[in-house]
């Protein structure tokens, strides 16, 4: 179990709505949330394994910008 944080441009609840089914369906994501109040719109994801690709690709495919925060 590890937590990964990303900087994104997910700005509103509408974006979250489109993101929800996709992220929910990804097998190794345990939980996730977007902090709309932060300036970086941080997406925090708890994943089961080390495969961070799935999250990154899924968000990217939906047309959002995503960048991991180290």
């Amino acid at each position: 179990m590890r937590i990964v944080k990303y900087k994104t441009n997910i700005k509103c609840t509408g974006c979250i709505k489109s993101l929800t089914p996709v992220l929910n369906a990804i097998d190794n994501i345990d939980s996730w949330k977007v902090d709309l109040n932060s300036s970086d719109k941080v997406l925090e994801v708890e994943i089961d394994d080390d495969n961070k690709e799935t999250v990154f690709n899924a968000v990217k495919d939906l047309g959002f910008e995503i960048e991991e925060i180290q």
Binding site: T13, I16, T20, S31, W32, K33, V34, E44
Partner: peptide, 11 residues
């Protein structure tokens, strides 16, 4: 059920 508990944006 009338009410359902869902997880939305982590909550």
């Amino acid at each position: 059920p009338k009410k359902v508990t869902a997880i939305r944006n982590g909550e």
